[in-house]
Amino acid sequence: MSLLSRFARNRLAVVGALALLLVLVMALAAPLLYPAGAFALVGPPTQPPGGTFPLGTDTLGRDVAAGIVWGARTSLIVSVAATLGAVVLGVLTGAFAGYYRGITDTAIMRVTEFFQTIPSFILAILLVAVLSPAVTSEILAIAVVSWPGIARLVRGEFASLGGREFVLATAGLGAGDARIVFRHILPNCASPLVAVGSLLVASAILFESGLSFLGLGDPNLMSWGLMISAGREVLRSAWWICTFPGIAILATVLSINLVGDGLNEAFNPGLRDR
C-alpha cells in the first residue's frame, strides 16, 4: 500500500489535512482578500459579527477577519521557519552524538539536558526580550527551545541504525563518514523525523501566539496572539475580538496534530493494528 493510501485510512488525519490546506490558502491569499492589510481602520469600533464585517471589528475599528487571514501568514511563516531551524540544528547535533558516541555524545546530550530543564517558554521570552521583538528573533527563540527534542530523537535513531549490517557494509566498501551519515543513515530516519517535525510546527504556533500575546511579537505583523491580547480587556462586551483568533489557533494546532498522527501511522503501519 502506498504512503498516501495508508494516510487516507485515518479519516481524522484527512480532515486535519483539509483544514490545514484551508489555512494555507487563506495565508497565501491574504493580500488579495484584504489588500489594505490587517492594521487598516475600516469601520466603527467593536462592531459585532455579521453585516459588512462577518467577524466584527475590534476596539480600534480594524476588521477581525482581516486579522485572522493576515495572522495565518505570520503564524505559518514563524512556525515553519522555526521548525526548519530546530530540525536542522537537532539533526546535525543528534547525528554527531549518535554516530560518534563516546565523549561527543556525552557532551551533546548534557547540553540538550541543559535546555530541557529550563522551562522552554520562559527561555523563549527571555531570548526575544534580549534580541528585541521582531519576527527573526521569534523564529530564533522558538528554534533554540525546540531543537533538543529533535536531537535526542535523531541520536536514538542513529545509535540503532549505526550497528546495522548495511551501514557496516558501506563502511566495508571504504565509504567515509559523511557518505554513511547523509546517504544511508539519515534517509532511514526520515519517517520519525517528519512525524515529530510536523508536531513541532503545532507547538511553534502556540509559542508564537504566546509571545505576541505578551507583546513580544513583531509590531509590524498581525498575529493571532496579538489580537487576543488586544481584545482581552473587552472580552465581556466584545467577545468576538478574542474568540475568533482563539478558534483559529485551536483549529490550526489541532489539524496539524491530526496530520502528524496520520503521518506517524502511515510510516508505521503496525501501530494501527496493535
Binding site: E165, L168, A169, R183, H184, P187, N188
Partner: peptide, 8 residues
C-alpha cells in the same frame, strides 16, 4: 534484510 539499505 538488514544488509541492504532499504532506501536505495
Amino acid at each position: 534484510y538488514a544488509s541492504l539499505d532499504p532506501r536505495q
